[in-house]
């Protein structure tokens, strides 16, 4: 069997194997991922699969939820995903376990759920931590142009591109990653190969302002570094302009808190002359 790289390839193979009655333990899946994650191309929708209406009279009933899950999991970098998906498919279609997906403590389901959770987290973190840098304004359209560099854990660019298209419709942008890149020009999304980090711009004049904001919104009286790192793991810091401030802010926090506590409290100042204040205090008194 040739290596499988994409969801649609896996699907074709899986269907063939299922029909020929090949049990999961007899199949060896080789991961052929080369850097492209071909998702959501025309062949995958509509989602309800050919498998449920297999030719030759054999009908395998597989819930749509399985294929939704499988589509997501196929973005994972773990080479075991193809075998795992086939094993679950087999158990549902031929093993008499139609409701397997509901068995939350089954080992295969646990693994599948953990893969899908990792993808979900990766999608979410990409939406959070991509940082666009302005590179100019398009002369012909007058649209502002932005470029971001990002390093996702899994091959999620195609899965995530629609989100950025819907959010940043009114500007031109590219997101570059080591595996592949995506571009938006107001008309359609375009996918190209991955590039090295040096291809991305290394600064934006707004970043000083953003760092000022980060510095000011931090409350030194409530330092909770671990809580912060749980949500913003160190591995992302290298592409976040504000991350270089963390060390200094942390170091000075207790001194700043101490200074606040040491300062002599201020006495209340008497009420200024103001018609509005007079009015609301009168109303409250009534």
């Amino acid at each position: 069997m040739k290596p499988v790289a994409t969801f649609s390839e896996w699907r074709i193979e899986a269907r063939r194997l299922l029909e020929s009655g090949a049990p999961p333990e007899s199949v060896f899946w080789e991961d052929g991922t080369t850097g492209q994650c071909e998702l959501f191309n025309e062949t995958t929708s509509p989602a309800l699969p050919e498998i449920s209406e297999a030719e030759g009279g054999s009908i395998f009933k597989v819930p749509k939820a399985f294929f939704d899950l499988a589509e997501v999991i196929s973005c994972h970098r773990d080479a075991r995903r193809w075998g795992l998906l086939y094993r679950i498919l087999w158990r549902i279609a031929r093993g008499g376990e139609r409701h397997l997906l509901a068995r939350s403590s089954d080992d295969d389901i646990l693994m599948a759920r953990s893969f899908s959770k990792e993808i979900g987290r990766d999608l979410h973190k990409m939406r959070a931590f991509v940082r666009f840098r302005k590179v100019g304004v398009c002369e012909s359209s007058g649209r502002e142009q932005f470029v971001a560099w990002f390093e996702p854990m899994h091959r999620i660019i195609r899965l995530n591109a629609p989100f950025f298209r819907k959010r940043f419709t009114g500007m031109d942008w590219s997101i570059l990653t080591p595996d592949d890149s995506v571009h938006w020009d107001g008309q359609k999304l375009r996918f190209t190969d991955g590039v090295p980090k040096s291809s991305a711009p290394d600064a934006d004049s707004l970043e000083e302002l953003w760092k000022s904001y980060y510095r000011s919104i931090f409350n030194p009286a409530r330092l909770k570094l671990k809580a912060m790192q749980a949500e913003m793991p160190v591995k992302y810091w290298k592409n976040l302009p504000e991350a270089e401030l963390i060390h200094g802010l942390t170091r000075d926090a207790s001194r700043r808190e101490h200074e606040m506590i040491e300062r002599r409290p201020l006495k209340p100042r008497s009420r200024p002359k103001n018609a509005y204040l007079d009015q609301i205090l009168r109303e409250s008194g009534e």
Binding site: R127, T169, K224, E231
Partner: peptide, 30 residues
């Protein structure tokens, strides 16, 4: 979302925390 509009912006679904300050609080909004 901003499809069909002249600007930017989308909302709905899960909120996104774009950064975290060392006080553990998320930075989602300006």
């Amino acid at each position: 979302d901003s499809i069909g509009g002249k600007g930017i912006g989308s909302a709905g679904g899960a909120g996104i925390c774009h950064s975290y300050a060392p006080d553990g609080r998320c930075i989602s909004l300006l």
